[in-house]
């Protein structure tokens, strides 16, 4: 299952969020060596881990967090706007309510065996498209290695560069924007072999009435609910 955690339902995910920040520290700092992010409590969080951040948490049956994405609204401060605007130099930093920025994608490389890890990566990618589509987001931006870029272009995703590739972490990376629509989700499901719904979203109140977020495969159109 992939849990969607926002500031609205974060109270239900205290442990899971803690696990996620620890996972990020283990992967990004202790494994990949991003020393600037090192923390004494071994919880990797930065200035963008605010109430505006949306987390996707890939969990195992017992609730253990084994993978994560962080999504930031591009209308608020995010990495491309505040830290790496130069990476988007050609097309400019994208800012729109319908566009999210994807960062801090990782799976637990220390705990999962290789096949499970591959599957986890695939589930996270499909979950990302599911989440965006259901949340009404039309695109997301991210920094990606050019090798991966090619792989996703090949399966037919609409990915456009925002700037020129740069050398980072020992390989070439490029800022891109990815289009999300039903077709993209279908293509991802098929290419990655993940047919099942991944995302579990526990909603929260908006205003003074309950707004229940859609969840699950048996989702029905609004008319049917009336």
């Amino acid at each position: 299952m992939i849990e969607v955690v926002t500031s609205r339902n974060a109270l239900l995910y205290k442990d899971a969020l803690h696990d996620m920040f620890h996972l990020r520290h283990r992967i990004f700092v202790e494994r990949m060596g991003w020393e600037a992010l090192r923390k004494s409590d071994r919880l990797e969080r930065d200035q963008f881990d605010t109430d505006d951040a949306i987390y996707l948490l890939l969990t195992e049956d017992d609730g253990k967090v084994v993978g994560t994405h962080r999504m930031l609204p591009t209308t608020k401060p995010h990495l491309f706007s505040d830290v790496f605007p130069n990476l988007c130099a050609v097309k400019g930093v994208q800012r729109d309510e319908k566009i999210l920025e994807l960062t801090r994608t990782c799976v637990d490389e220390e705990v999962l065996d290789r096949p499970t890890m591959e599957k986890a990566r695939k589930r996270l990618m499909v979950g990302l498209f599911e989440f965006c589509l259901r949340g009404g987001y039309e695109k997301f931006t991210l920094l990606t290695p050019t090798d991966l870029l090619f792989r996703y272009l090949l399966i037919g995703l609409d990915i456009k560069p925002l700037g020129m590739p740069v050398d980072m972490d020992g390989n070439k990376q490029v800022a891109v924007i990815v289009k999300v629509d039903q077709q993209a989700l279908d293509v991802m499901r098929m290419a990655l072999g993940v047919p099942e719904t991944q995302v579990h979203y526990v909603g929260a109140p908006q205003g003074d009435r309950l707004v229940l977020a859609p969840d699950g495969a048996q989702q029905r159109p609004l008319e049917a609910a009336e």
């Binding site: 339902n9 995910y13 899971a16 526990v202 908006q206 969840d215 989702q219 609004l222 609910a225």
Partner: peptide
């Protein structure tokens, strides 16, 4: 949660209800 050992919600909201 401690009693059941679960760390993620048991609650799920299935259908759309747009207020």
């Amino acid at each position: 949660r401690n009693k059941t050992g679960s760390r993620t919600p048991v609650l799920q909201l299935q259908a759309i209800a747009q207020a």
